[in-house]
């Protein structure tokens, strides 16, 4: 059975990391990096989420099937975003602006 008992020490470590990353993302937001701001903010958020998913949600110790399905959820979200933005970002390329 896939009963994995996480150690208190590990859970506390993750907790502290999450708090530290929250402070970091707030602090970084006040510096102007232009377009990079959003990239930094989302990277930190993605890293925080990964910590939660892997350790709090036990995916790190889960079966291969759990990995596949957890990954599929995020992959499909990416598909939705990529193809939707494919439309919006390429609209200015058109020589005809309206029809």
């Amino acid at each position: 059975m896939s009963t994995h008992v996480a150690s208190v020490r590990l859970l506390l470590t993750i907790f502290v990391m999450l708090l530290a990353l929250t402070a970091t993302t707030v602090a970084v937001a006040y510096f102007d990096f232009g377009r990079v701001n959003i990239v930094v903010a989302l990277s930190i958020a993605a890293f925080k989420s990964a910590l939660v998913v892997l350790y709090f949600m036990h995916v790190r110790y889960g079966s291969r099937l759990t990995w596949v399905f957890a990954g599929a959820g995020f992959l499909w979200l990416v598909l939705l975003l990529v193809f939707t933005f494919g439309d919006y970002l390429s609209r200015p390329w058109e020589s005809v602006t309206a029809w």
Partner: peptide, 11 residues
């Protein structure tokens, strides 16, 4: 519909 024609090509 007014979707970008480049997106149309890919789709």
């Amino acid at each position: 519909s007014g979707q970008s024609m480049y997106a149309g090509l890919v789709f």
